[in-house]
Amino acid sequence: MIKLKTPITEEKIRSLKVGDVVSLSGVFITARDAAHKYMIDEWLDKEPRGEDAELRAILGPLLDGGVIYHCGPVVRQDEKGKWHFVAAGPTTSAREEPYQHRVIGQLGVRAVIGKGGMGEMTLDACVKHGAVYLHAVGGAASLIAQQVVEVEDVYKTEFGLPEAFWRIRVEDFQCVVTMDSHGESLHKKVLQDSRKRYEEIFGA
């Protein structure tokens, strides 16, 4: 088990290989569909202004060398107004494929956690900029929520609670490297092998 703490250096990321089991501690930012579209539209496609510039000033330093978690949690707010994660497994990452490479390249994100893997554009960005894709177990939501020790803040709740940016502190959050900065992807390999097996079955 390789222990990593945020922010993560490029050197550390480059040392990781597909199949490595890592344990992360530090700060994650959750971002899924609405949040990725927002980062591209309001931060990267134009010079952010007003509230958008303020949010980038808050999240930018956390994303630089940081971790994005593809997750739309079930959350609970206590009497004091403090949020807690109740269930928080990963969501399907493939939907962020059109955006992820730019978020990695232009915001300096070092690790993306999700499920199901991502495509060529993201893999290229991992190679070019020094980043990895980490796989958590899809659906293991009650278990994963135990690793979230604190919800530090939440932004853009107008996207809906599952789609907001949640700033969380985690301890010993375990996942597996399935796409590395050397161009290896477990997802690519399993897809190729299973397609080959399919063709064998039907004698194509």
């Binding site: 899809g138 939501a141 278990l143 135990q146």
Partner: peptide, 28 residues
């Protein structure tokens, strides 16, 4: 194997969700 470990995590999560009465998966 990764497959065995993944299924182990899944089974652990199922038991925990039932015990805590929290969602098995966050996507309900």
């Amino acid at each position: 194997s990764p497959a065995a470990a993944t299924l182990g995590t899944i089974l652990e999560n199922i038991d925990l969700a039932e015990k805590l009465s929290t969602p098995i998966c966050q996507d309900t």
